[in-house]
C-alpha cells in the first residue's frame, strides 16, 4: 500500500485554486468618481483659463524665435569648406618631407 505523501496534498491545492469561485466584484470608493471628475475639470480649466491674448503672444514669440534662428543661420552659418585637418596634414607631410 502506498503511503500518503504529506508534502503533496493535491486536494488542498485544488481547494486553494477554487477559492476565488463565486467571488463578488470589489466596489470602488464612492468618492473616487468625484476625484476623477475634479481632476478632469481642473485639467480642462487649465486649458480654458489661458486667455486668447496670452496664447497668441506665446505663439508669436515662438514664431519670432524660429525666424531669428533661421535668419542667423542664413547670415552666419556658412557650411564648412575644406577639410579641418588640412593644416595638420600639411604639417605632417612637411615633417615627412624633412624626414625623407
Amino acid at each position: 500500500m502506498e503511503a500518503k505523501n504529506p508534502d503533496h496534498d493535491s486536494s488542498r491545492e485544488e481547494k486553494t485554486l477554487k477559492s476565488l469561485d463565486n467571488m463578488q466584484r470589489a466596489h470602488a470608493n464612492p468618492l473616487l468618481y468625484d476625484r476623477i471628475m475634479k481632476s478632469i475639470e481642473s485639467a480642462e480649466a487649465k486649458i480654458v483659463s489661458m486667455p486668447p491674448f496670452q496664447r497668441w503672444s506665446i505663439a508669436a514669440g515662438l514664431a519670432l524665435l524660429i525666424l531669428l534662428n533661421a535668419y542667423s543661420l542664413r547670415q552666419h552659418g556658412h557650411p564648412h569648406k575644406g577639410n579641418a585637418y588640412d593644416p595638420f596634414a600639411k604639417e605632417y607631410f612637411s615633417y615627412l618631407e624633412n624626414q625623407f
Binding site: S19, L20, N22, M23
Partner: peptide, 8 residues
C-alpha cells in the same frame, strides 16, 4: 480581496 467569501 474584499469580494472573496469569508471561508475562502
Amino acid at each position: 480581496h474584499p469580494g472573496v467569501q469569508l471561508e475562502n
